[in-house]
Computed example of a mutant assay.
Amino acid sequence: MLNTMKGAIFDLDGVIVDTAKYHYLAWQALAKRLGFDFTEEDNERLKGVSRMESLRILLEIGGIEAGEVERLEMAEMKNREYVSSISKLDPSEILPGAREYLELLRGRGVKIALGSASQNAAFILSRLGIARLFDAVIDGTKVSQAKPDPEVFLAASEALGLRPSECVVFEDAAAGVQAGKAAGCKVVGIGSPDILHQADRVIAGLYELI
């Protein structure tokens, strides 16, 4: 599977870098402003989910009703908090083995894309100093459907000029694994086999593939 793939499509959070902690702190700060607690357990429901869907879940947890304009303001408030945090990102925060594996794939002539719900993906890649390693970046600014919808991975394979069946997706969230499979890609799960059991293969981190 990995030796024959022509394209590799990577999720961002939890695969290339751990920005999940910054998302959590930003959502937690918003919840505090709205008058309720947002726990790490609550945050598990937001993994691999788009910004507006994450906000819907957060407001559901807090039992808060809000109109569309209010929701957009809240989402922007959360994003400002998050961007402020990730503006301090540097290459030292790349997860173990990620840069090395990306460079290994480039050396083999494998095309590489990012497939992430994040609307800040390009900024994060530039902060990490690895933007040059990607042939295409498909993020939350280019797709409208959140995982487990396969849109992001279908768009990524198309951007690489490949069929989904020629690509392998690397994902750390169950919704992302489902999206990759629905797109027709092979999927490598990064994390727990119990959670990512639908993946074709599960590893602890990209360092295992070096």
Rank of each mutant, 00 (worst) to 15 (best):
T4Q: 13
T4N: 13
T4K: 12
M5D: 00
K6Q: 12
F10R: 07
D11I: 08
I16Y: 03
D18L: 13
D18P: 12
A20Q: 13
K21E: 14
K21H: 14
H23C: 12
A26M: 08
W27T: 04
L30F: 09
L30R: 12
K32C: 08
K32I: 07
R33A: 12
R33I: 08
G35S: 09
G35H: 09
G35R: 02
D37M: 06
D37N: 11
E41S: 07
E41F: 10
E44L: 15
G48D: 04
V49E: 07
S50F: 02
R51H: 09
R51L: 11
S54G: 15
L55D: 00
L55T: 05
R56N: 14
L58H: 02
L59C: 11
E60I: 00
I61C: 06
G62H: 01
G63S: 06
E65F: 10
A66R: 13
E70Y: 07
R71L: 09
L72Y: 13
L72A: 13
M74V: 12
A75R: 01
V83Y: 12
K88R: 15
D90N: 15
E93P: 00
E93N: 08
I94D: 01
I94S: 12
E100S: 13
L102P: 01
E103H: 06
L105P: 01
R106N: 04
V110S: 00
A113D: 00
G115C: 09
A117L: 06
S118F: 06
A122C: 00
F123T: 09
R127H: 11
G129L: 04
G129C: 04
I130W: 02
L133N: 01
F134H: 08
I138M: 03
D139F: 05
T141R: 10
Q145S: 14
K147I: 06
L154G: 00
E158K: 14
A159K: 09
G161Y: 13
P164M: 05
S165Q: 12
C167A: 00
C167G: 00
V169N: 03
E171I: 08
A173F: 11
V177C: 03
Q178K: 11
A179K: 01
G180E: 03
K181N: 05
A183I: 07
A183T: 01
C185H: 02
G189N: 06
G189A: 07
G191L: 11
D194G: 04
I195M: 08
H197F: 15
Q198N: 07
D200C: 11
I203D: 10
I203V: 14
A204C: 09
G205V: 10
L206Q: 04
L209P: 09
